[in-house]
Design a protein around this nucleic acid. Structure first.
Lengths: 208, 208
DNA sequence: TAGATTGTTAATCGATTAACAATC
DNA sequence: TAGATTGTTAATCGATTAACAATC
């Protein structure tokens, strides 16, 4: 369970609902029942209704759910309507890929700065955001107060930078490094993405 | 539950055990009790013992676990000792980042090919693996029989390529695209990595 | 032998599914 | 009104935690 009282399992499913509803909208559909949505997403209708009812009553008996309306509600629940400032640390291949391909605005964030330790990268623009030198991070944060940081740097660097960012008021992390933020900072909100772990899990599944 | 009878929750924790044991080894430690490991990893000792006992009896009463031995056992369980051939589809920023930074050999795989639709990339080497044109994928697979594919391409392309790869004998996917492989191919092993979903989850946590 | 710590069973907790009355 | 489908409560299932006998 979370501070909000909603279980993590439910929250983790919300983005997928959001995506599916977006596709249905694109297909020109306007309403859908929990039953039909469950068929499409390969879940149970029960689960969908339970999940949604954590946040309110968005459907109508005998009718189902209005797709556009429901998608908007989920957007609000996820906070997509109030983007928060985020910075990206590390402009190597991975950092650049993130900066290039992720539509931050559509995911609830506003990318306001990119930082790297490599002088040669400083000044380059990625999607209208300039890469700055890591030595200017402190000052930048004091001025711009980002709420979230995306860590695309190695483990050792992450520990130090993360410590600093938390002192500067950063509350959440999208963490690509192997540094285990929560161990040192139990109150930080962290989403870990560990490619290596996913590969090993896949290896297990393919080996057994 | 899995074909192997081990629950997914357990399997997902194995890579983290593996990483922690590696660090303990680096620190020069040789043994550890479930209690001390649980303190370091912020889990319960019970859970650690339960998890490990799914696969065998690796500890000793009154002593604990031998770190090196346990790490090796987990490596075997994960299949890291028998690397499987994998190919990477899409050599944009993300694909390149993956090819550059991930130590495939250490994660149970052997990267044998990289493919892209962009002619200008063809022939470039990434870590000794040449980028090939996507039109040669079919032939390459027939000759080299890769077991796994990493999809770093957009949703639409993924659907088509994935279909083809499964026909060519690919069994597992590390999927960065929004194409929902399991819906069309229930028997494929899939690990999804959706940056966007993780960002939205983070947005939720920072908004509530 | 006494102390420590495992492997394993039993108890608890939480998440998912089923059922159904309420209602559009 | 009758049919459909929700919201919600109850039942089931699975995962985590606690307890403890076995044993090094």
């Amino acid at each position: 369970m979370n501070p909000t009282g909603i279980s993590n399992s439910v929250i983790k499913r919300l983005p997928r609902y959001y995506r599916f509803l977006g596709e249905l909208k694109k297909e020109g559909m306007t309403r859908i029942s929990s039953r039909e949505l469950s068929d499409r997403m390969h879940l149970t209708a029960s689960q969908i209704r339970q999940d949604l009812n954590c946040f309110g009553e968005f459907g109508q008996q005998g009718y189902g759910y209005n797709i556009e309306l429901l998608q908007n509600e989920i957007a609000k629940i996820l906070g997509l309507d109030k983007p928060q400032n985020a910075i990206l640390i590390g402009a190597g291949n991975l950092g650049k890929a993130i900066a290039h391909y992720i539509n931050f605005e559509a995911k609830g964030f506003h990318l306001i700065g990119i930082f790297d330790a490599k002088e040669s990268l400083v000044g380059q623009m990625v999607r209208n955001v300039p890469i700055r030198h890591i030595s200017t991070l402190d000052e930048f944060c004091r001025e711009n107060m980002p709420r979230a940081a995306i860590l695309c740097i190695p483990k050792e660097a992450s520990k130090e930078i993360c410590n600093m960012l938390i002192k500067l008021g950063v509350k959440g992390f999208l963490n690509f490094s192997h540094y285990d933020i929560s161990l040192d900072h139990p109150d930080a909100e962290v989403e870990n993405i560990h490619f290596g772990d996913s590969l090993m899990t896949l290896s297990y599944k393919l080996s057994n």
